[in-house]
Design a protein around this nucleic acid. Structure first.
Length: 953
RNA sequence: ACACCCGUAGCUCAGCUGGUUAGAGCGCUACCUUGACAUGGUAGAGGUCGAUGGUUCGAGUCCAUUCGGGUGUACCA
C-alpha cells in the first residue's frame, strides 16, 4: 500500500466496479427480511448540494448496513421533473439563445425542447450521486414523468375523481402573476414588509348617518387598489356605533357602486374604526365573508395582475353573474397593480376621501419560485379534498405506524394536518403531467385515462369535439406517489410486495408538508395491507436539519457561501472557487463582496479530502434533527482519521503479509492485549448497533473513531510490538492472527460509513484473515459475540495501561526523556497486581521503558522518589539528587487538596440522612467505595509527604 | 399570537428514561522526527452547564418564570 492515503486514486474506479458487478441490486433472498429506502427524488435541474450529500450519506450508510446484515435491500433512485423549476430554466435558456418565448414555439415544440434538455443535462445530479458512493440500484432508476409513473399519476387522478376527492371549481387561489399559474399555499412565502395603512372615507348612501352624525364610514386598507373590487363594508353585529347602519348602503367612490353594509363576527370591533372593506375576489378572509353573505365577487385583475377594463362578476357558487355591472373606470384599465395603488390613493385624496396614512408592517406573500408578490385571484382550478385522507394519515402517526425521528416533528405534522386546506393541484404550465380531463364544446368535463376511454364511458359520438384540459398537475402530486409508483403500481408487482411499506424516509424538515404528509395521505388511500387496512408508505421518517455555513448562515448563491460537496471531495483552487461562486449570478452587484470573502476564507482554496472523509464528517455531525454548522476543520480531522486507518493497516500488513497468521492452523497463544482488543471490539460492535438502531449516526461515528484511534492504534498496535519482536512462535502467530482478524472485522464495521477506504484495505487483508468473498460490500456485518468478551483480560489490561500512563506522567512532569530507561519500585502490591506485573513485563518494558520493577518489602524504606498511585499500588521512581523536594511536595499537596474536596463532598452526601434513607443501595455503595478510595489515596499521599520530609532531613 | 428547537470549554457540539470527579473534536501550551502514521506521538491547561425560583436524598438532565438566538404555522382589515 502507498505510504499516504490518497482517496482520489481509489474511489471512482471502485464505484464503477461495484456498479458493474451489480452489487447494488437486491439479492432477492428474503430470509433475513427486506429493506427499502426511497430516495427523495432530486430535481432533474439540480446539482448536488450539501443537503443532498448529507442525506445521501445517511441513506447509503443505512442501506449498506442492512445489506451487510443480509437483508434483501433496495435503495430506489430517481429524479423529479420539478415542473416550475425546469420549465423556468428551459424558458430562460430559450430566451437567451434564441430570443424566443415558449409561446413562440408552441406547446409541443416547447415540450420537445424540455425533453431534449432533460436528456442532455438531467444526469448531472445522478452522476454526482455516484461520487458520494451511493449504492442505489441504477437499473431501477425512475423519473416522475416516465411512462410508468405517468400511468400511476393518471390512475390516481381518475380514481380520486371517481371517489369525489378531486373536484374542479372557481375559487380564490394564490396566483403568481409572473409565472401565470396558480400555486399552493405552501409555495407562498410570507415576508415581513414595511407598508402603509391607508384610511379612506366611504360615503354612506341615501343620506344615512352614523351614530355620531357622520355621513361616511372610515375604513382602512393596506392594498388600496383592491377597493375597485369591494362588494360590501362589514361591521361587527354587536358594534353599537354601526348597528343602525346594517343593511344600509355605501356608495363606493371611484367606481360608484352601491354596496351593502353587512354584519359579521370576523370584524374586530377594537381594531381601527371597526369597519372593514370586503373584497371577496382579492382577499382570502373577505372571500369567506363574501360567501357567508352571498356577496358578488368582482374580479378586477388580469392574469398579469393588471387592472381589467371590466370586472368579472362571479356569484358565490362560482357561476358568472351577468346581471351586475362590472364596469371599472377607463383610466385604470390595464394599469399595473402597484401603479393603480398609487393612482387610487391620489384620486381619493383629490376627492377628499383620504384619511390618515400610517406606517404599517405587514406580511406580504411572495412566490417561492418567481419572487413576485402573489395575488389572490379567482380562477378555475382542480383541487384534492384532502380532509378525509388527512384523517387516516394523522392516525397513522398517532398510533405509531409511522414514527418521526426526532419525534418533535410530529407536532408540526399534526398541527398542519389538523387544519389542512384543500390542495390546489392544477398548474398553468406545460411541463408536467397533463390533467386527464376533457371538455366538450359546452364546457362539460369528462375525466378518464385517455380520450378513447372517456368517449366510451360517456358514450360520446365521434362528432363531439373534445378538448383536453390545458393544465398540468403540481409536481408534488406525482412525488406523493413515489413509494409505490416506483415499485410498479398500479400493477401488483413482486417488488411492491417485497419492499412496500418502505423502511425509512430520510428527508429535510422543509418538505414535511410538501411531500411527506401528502405521500402518507396518497399511499394510505391507494395501498392496502393484506387485511385491507391502509398501508403506510414508510415506517420511520428521519428528519434532517439544514447544513449551514461556518457562521450559521443558510447557504445560498446570493450570499456566495455555498459549498459544493464535490469540492470537498476533489478539492478546488481559489481562482476556480471564486469563479464558481461569482459566475452566473442573479444579482451581479454582489460579486465583489463574495469574491472578497471567498479569498479571505479560502486563501489556499479547498484541499481534496475524499468521499469517505466527507461521509464520515456528515455522519459524525448528524445529531438529531438540528441544523448543522459546517466545519471545515472537522472535515480535515476526519481525513486525518482516514489516514490513520490507512497507516494502521499498513502496519498490520507489514507485520502479517507473507507471515504465518494462523490461517493454516498451528499453535496460537493470545496475549493479554489480544484478548483485550477482541473483547473491546465486540463491545464496540454492540454499541455501534445500538446507535444505528436509534438513528444516532453521530454517536455511531464517534464509537468507530474512538475505538480505531484511541484503542486500536494508540494502544493495541503498540502492544503488539513487543510480542512481534520477542514473542514465541505461538505468541507471534496469535498476535498476527488477532491483528488481521480484528482489522478485517473493523473494516466491515466501518464500511457502511466509509465504503471506499475500507474496501480497498479489505482486499489486502482478507486472505490473511482467511476470509472469502469478492467484495466487502456484501460481506456479513460483524455480530456482537458475548463469549469473546473476556472481562478479566479487559480489567487486567486496563490496569496495565494505568501503570504505563503513570510512568508517562512522571516523565512528563519531571521532564524525563521518553527514551530514558527507568527503574520502578512498587509498594502495596496485591497478589493480583503482582501476577499482572509478572505476566506483562514486555509491555512495561516497551511502552513505559521500565527497565525493572522491584516490589518493596513491607516496611522497607524507599529512596528519594516521585510517586504515582495506580489503584491500591504505589509506583515509585527513585530520583535521588534529581528531585526538587519542594516541587514534589507542592504536587502532592495539590492532589491532596483536590482529593479532600471530593472526599468532603461525598462525606456530606453520606451523612445526609435523606440520602442514606432514600437513595438506592447501589448508589450508596458506590459513594462509600469512592470515599474509601479517596481516603486511602490521601493516606498514601500523606505518608509520601512524611517520607520526603524525613529523607530530606 | 401559538407551537417547537437551541443556549454546556476559545470554537463546533455530545451528555439516552435525574445518581462516578460534566465529555469529544478542533484550537491552545510544553515536550518528542521512537521503523505504521508529523494528516503523527506523549503530557497538560481550559467549564459556577443563559438567569432565577421550585420538585427531589440528589438537577446540566424534571417543573415554573425569565432573558437571548432560531424555526414553523396563523395572522387585524
Amino acid at each position: 500500500m502507498e505510504k499516504t492515503y490518497n482517496p482520489q486514486s481509489i474511489e471512482q474506479s471502485l464505484y464503477q466496479t461495484w456498479e458493474e458487478k451489480g452489487y447494488f441490486k437486491p439479492h432477492g433472498d428474503e430470509s433475513k427480511g427486506n429493506y427499502c429506502i426511497m430516495i427523495p427524488p432530486p430535481n432533474v435541474t439540480g446539482s448536488l448540494h450539501m443537503g443532498h450529500a448529507f442525506q445521501d450519506t445517511i441513506m447509503d450508510t443505512l442501506t449498506r448496513y442492512q445489506r451487510m446484515k443480509g437483508k434483501n435491500t433496495l435503495w430506489q433512485v430517481g429524479t423529479d421533473h420539478a415542473g416550475i423549476a425546469t420549465q423556468m430554466l428551459v424558458e430562460r435558456k430559450l430566451e437567451a439563445e434564441e430570443g424566443k418565448s415558449r409561446h413562440d414555439l408552441g406547446r409541443d415544440a416547447f415540450m420537445d425542447k424540455v425533453w431534449e434538455w432533460k436528456n442532455q443535462s438531467g444526469g448531472t445530479i445522478t452522476s454526482q450521486l455516484r461520487r458520494m458512493g451511493a449504492s442505489v440500484d441504477w437499473d431501477r432508476e425512475r423519473f416522475t414523468m416516465d411512462d410508468g409513473l405517468s400511468d400511476a399519476v393518471q390512475e390516481v387522478f381518475v380514481r380520486l375523481y371517481d371517489d369525489e376527492l378531486i373536484y374542479r371549481g372557481k375559487r380564490l387561489v394564490n396566483w403568481d402573476p409572473k409565472l401565470h399559474t396558480a400555486i399552493s399555499d405552501l409555495e407562498v412565502e410570507n415576508k415581513e414588509k414595511q407598508g402603509h395603512m391607508w384610511h379612506f372615507r366611504y360615503p354612506l348612501a341615501n343620506g344615512a348617518l352614523t351614530a355620531d352624525g357622520k355621513d361616511y364610514l372610515e375604513i382602512a386598507t393596506t392594498r388600496p387598489e383592491t377597493m375597485l373590487g369591494d362588494s360590501a363594508v362589514a361591521v361587527h353585529p354587536d358594534d353599537e356605533r354601526y348597528q343602525s347602519l346594517i343593511g344600509k348602503f355605501i356608495m363606493l367612490p371611484i367606481v360608484n357602486r352601491l354596496i351593502p353594509i353587512v354584519a359579521d363576527d370576523y370584524v374586530d370591533m377594537d381594531f381601527g374604526t371597526g369597519c372593514v372593506k370586503i373584497t371577496p375576489a382579492h382577499d382570502f378572509n373577505d372571500y369567506e365573508v363574501g360567501k357567508r353573505h352571498q356577496l358578488p365577487m368582482y374580479n378586477i385583475m388580469t392574469m398579469n395582475a393588471d387592472i381589467r377594463s371590466v370586472a368579472e362578476v362571479v356569484n358565490t357558487d362560482g357561476t358568472a353573474n351577468n346581471e351586475l355591472d362590472g364596469s371599472l373606470p377607463e383610466r385604470y384599465a390595464g394599469m399595473e397593480r402597484f401603479a393603480a395603488r398609487k393612482a387610487i390613493v391620489e384620486e381619493l385624496d383629490t376627492l377628499g376621501l383620504l384619511g390618515k396614512i400610517d406606517p404599517h408592517s405587514l406580511k406580504v406573500p411572495y412566490g417561492d419560485r418567481s419572487g413576485v408578490v402573489i395575488e389572490p385571484l379567482l380562477t378555475d382550478q382542480w383541487y384534492v379534498a384532502v380532509a378525509p385522507m388527512a384523517k387516516t394519515a394523522i392516525e397513522a402517526v398517532e398510533n405509531g405506524a409511522i414514527k418521526f425521528v426526532p419525534q418533535q416533528y410530529e407536532n408540526m405534522y399534526f398541527s398542519w394536518m389538523r387544519d389542512i386546506q384543500d390542495w390546489c393541484i392544477s398548474r398553468q404550465l406545460w411541463w408536467g403531467h397533463r390533467i386527464p380531463a376533457w371538455y366538450d364544446e359546452a364546457g362539460k368535463v369528462y375525466v378518464g385515462r385517455n380520450e378513447a376511454e372517456v368517449r366510451a364511458k360517456h358514450k360520446l359520438a365521434d362528432s363531439v369535439v373534445l378538448q383536453q384540459d390545458n393544465d398540468v398537475l403540481d409536481t408534488w402530486f406525482s412525488s406523493a406517489l413515489w413509494t409505490f409508483s416506483t415499485l410498479g403500481w398500479p400493477q401488483q408487482t413482486p417488488e411492491l410486495k417485497m419492499f412496500h411499506p418502505t423502511d425509512v424516509l430520510v428527508t429535510g424538515f422543509d418538505i414535511i408538508f410538501f411531500w411527506v404528509a401528502r405521500m402518507i395521505m396518497m399511499t394510505m388511500h391507494f395501498i392496502k395491507n393484506e387485511d385491507g387496512t391502509p398501508q403506510v408508505p414508510f415506517k420511520t421518517v428521519y428528519v434532517t436539519g439544514l447544513i449551514r455555513d461556518e457562521q450559521g448562515q443558510k447557504m445560498s448563491k446570493s450570499k456566495g457561501n455555498v459549498l459544493d460537496p464535490l469540492d470537498m471531495i476533489d478539492g478546488i483552487d481559489l481562482e476556480s472557487l471564486v469563479t464558481k461562486r461569482t459566475g452566473n449570478m442573479m444579482q451581479p452587484q454582489l460579486a465583489a463582496k463574495i469574491e472578497k470573502s471567498t479569498r479571505k476564507e479560502f486563501a489556499e482554496g479547498i484541499e481534496a479530502h475524499g468521499t469517505d472523509a466527507l461521509r464520515f464528517t456528515l455522519a459524525a455531525m448528524a445529531s438529531t434533527g438540528r441544523d448543522i454548522n459546517w466545519d471545515m476543520k472537522r472535515l480535515d480531522g476526519y481525513r486525518s482519521f482516514c489516514n490513520k486507518l490507512w497507516n494502521a493497516s499498513r502496519y498490520v500488513l507489514m507485520n502479517t503479509e507473507e507471515q504465518d497468521c494462523g490461517q493454516n492452523g498451528g499453535d496460537m497463544e493470545l496475549s493479554l492485549a489480544d484478548r483485550w482488543i477482541i473483547g473491546l471490539f465486540n463491545q464496540t460492535v454492540q454499541t455501534f448497533d445500538e446507535h444505528m438502531e436509534a438513528y444516532r449516526f453521530d454517536l455511531a461515528a464517534n464509537t468507530l473513531y474512538e475505538f480505531t484511534w484511541n484503542q486500536f492504534c494508540d494502544w493495541y498496535l503498540e502492544l503488539t510490538k513487543p510480542v512481534l519482536q520477542n514473542g514465541s512462535e505461538a505468541q507471534m502467530r496469535g498476535t498476527r492472527h488477532t491483528l488481521v482478524t480484528v482489522l478485517e472485522q473493523l473494516l466491515r464495521l466501518m464500511h457502511p460509513i466509509m465504503p471506499y477506504i475500507t474496501e480497498t484495505i479489505w482486499t489486502r487483508v482478507k486472505p490473511l484473515a482467511g476470509v472469502e468473498g469478492e467484495t466487502l460490500m456484501l460481506a456479513a456485518f460483524p455480530e456482537y459475540q458475548a463469549d469473546k468478551v473476556d472481562t478479566q483480560a479487559m480489567a487486567d489490561l486496563e490496569w496495565v495501561k494505568q501503570v504505563i500512563v503513570a510512568v508517562r506522567n512522571i516523565r512528563a512532569e519531571l521532564n524525563i526523556a521518553p527514551s530514558k530507561p527507568l527503574n520502578a519500585l512498587l509498594r502495596s502490591v496485591s497478589a493480583e497486581d503482582q501476577a499482572r506485573i509478572e505476566a506483562n513485563q514486555p509491555f512495561f518494558k516497551t511502552l513505559a521503558k521500565l527497565e525493572s520493577m522491584t516490589i518493596l518489602a513491607d516496611g522497607e524504606t524507599a529512596p528519594m522518589s516521585t510517586t504515582q498511585l495506580v489503584g491500591n499500588m504505589e509506583l515509585l521512581i527513585p530520583m535521588a539528587g534529581l528531585i526538587d523536594v519542594a516541587a514534589e511536595m507542592a504536587r502532592i499537596d495539590k492532589q491532596l487538596e483536590k482529593l479532600s474536596l471530593d472526599a468532603k463532598r461525598i462525606e456530606g452526601k453520606l451523612s445526609n440522612e435523606g440520602f442514606v434513607a432514600k437513595a438506592p443501595a447501589v448508589v450508596i455503595d458506590k459513594e462509600r467505595a469512592k470515599l474509601a478510595e479517596f481516603t486511602r489515596d490521601m493516606d498514601k499521599l500523606n505518608e509520601q509527604k512524611a517520607e520526603l520530609a524525613k529523607l530530606e532531613a
